[in-house]
Simulated assay, not measured.
Amino acid sequence: MRVSRIIDMKKWLAVMGILGLSVMTLAACGNKGDSKVSGEKQTITVATDSDTAPFTFKKGDDFKGYDIDLVKAVFKDSDKYEVKFVTTPFDSILTGVDSGRYQIAANDFNYNEERAQKYSFSDPISRSNYAIISAEGTKYTSLDDLSGKTTEVLPGTNYAQLLENWNHANADKTPITINYASSSTGLSTRVQHIQEGKIDFILYDAISSEYIVKDQGYKLAVNKLKDDIGMKTDGLEYLLFSKNKQGKELKTFVNKRIKELKKDGTLAKLSKEYFGGDYVSDLK
């Protein structure tokens, strides 16, 4: 009887030993898996047309510009996200956000009601007034000055909307002739068309207008628009997100970082580097 009990005890100890090893092995595997999952970062794809200097452009293979460096600063040292940039035509940026291919749109985006219905806006990241680029010796400072003149504009932009609205509101005046350019027709090409006499003007933001005329050596006039467009969002620039759970989480993260970067002087530093002045310190 005693021998039988000893044998049973040995069997019991052997079984418990095997079970113990199994539990330890499973625990080790579980810890390894958990470590791998916790170490993985979520890739955030940022879409830009790389043709809206000084906000976004490419230098060789490198993405550059105020918007680009700001986004890099936002995600620097993040333990949750890693960021990558892609170049796509302007009119494909927001459709890419719609489809989920891109999580952030960064391309000197301004506010308008139509966009606000579909997309979520970050806190403003810069402020620039509207300006009119035109032939040397001209001085257009009001939309009324553009009556009977010809321009090129990308459809769906704030600039197109402002000109369209002026035409609708001023049916008694000679309309502004608006030629809609394809997304492959960059700003530099449209500015060149002014120099060549193909169009009379371009309505754009003051920062980009002054930058491209100076950078490309064009002999053109740049005058800030004096009209009161009447929107508190006038001239403000934003990053855009989709209106879903991920977009909401990203917006919260990005806005927190924007406040920190404004406070520590990073935004002002980038503004001076790319814009030649401080276009951010008065942002609220």
Rank of each mutant, 00 (worst) to 15 (best):
D282M: 11
V213I: 07
M1P: 11
N179A: 07
K80C: 12
A181C: 04
E237I: 10
K232I: 13
F241N: 00
V97Y: 09
W166Q: 06
G137I: 10
Y204F: 08
Y159G: 08
Y102M: 10
V74H: 04
L163G: 09
E210Y: 02
W12D: 14
Y140W: 07
E237C: 09
D145I: 02
S209N: 01
N110Y: 00
N244C: 11
L250E: 07
E260Y: 00
F109S: 06
L163P: 13
G197M: 06
F57Y: 09
V83L: 05
V71P: 11
V83Y: 03
V3P: 01
D79C: 04
M16Y: 10
G276F: 01
Y130G: 11
V46E: 10
E136Y: 08
M9V: 14
T52M: 15
K11R: 14
S22M: 03
Y238L: 04
D228P: 01
T151G: 09
F90R: 10
A28E: 07
G277R: 13
L146F: 07
Q192H: 10
D49T: 09
K259C: 09
T150Q: 10
Y180L: 11
E273K: 15
E113K: 09
D234I: 01
L19E: 13
M231W: 07
A105W: 01
G197W: 08
D172E: 15
D144H: 04
M16G: 12
D67S: 14
Q216K: 14
F109R: 01
D49R: 02
A106P: 06
K248L: 10
G17I: 07
S209Q: 02
K262Y: 01
V86C: 00
R127S: 12
L94R: 00
F75L: 03
T189A: 13
V71D: 11
A116N: 14
A131Q: 02
E249M: 11
N179L: 11
G235D: 04
N170G: 08
Q103W: 07
S182R: 00
G276S: 01
S208A: 14
A14P: 03
Y211V: 02
L21W: 04
Y238G: 09
S188V: 12
F63H: 15
K269D: 14
K214T: 11
S147V: 10
K214M: 03
S78N: 10
T138Q: 11
K259D: 15
V213T: 07
D264R: 00
A106G: 12
V213H: 01
T141N: 06
L203V: 14
T189E: 13
E113S: 13
K269Y: 08
D69A: 02
L250D: 12
V254P: 01
A268Q: 15
S209F: 00
K10H: 01
D91P: 02
D108A: 14
K269I: 08
F275C: 12
Y140L: 11
T43N: 14
K173S: 07
T150R: 11
K245A: 15
L236W: 02
Y204T: 15
E273H: 08
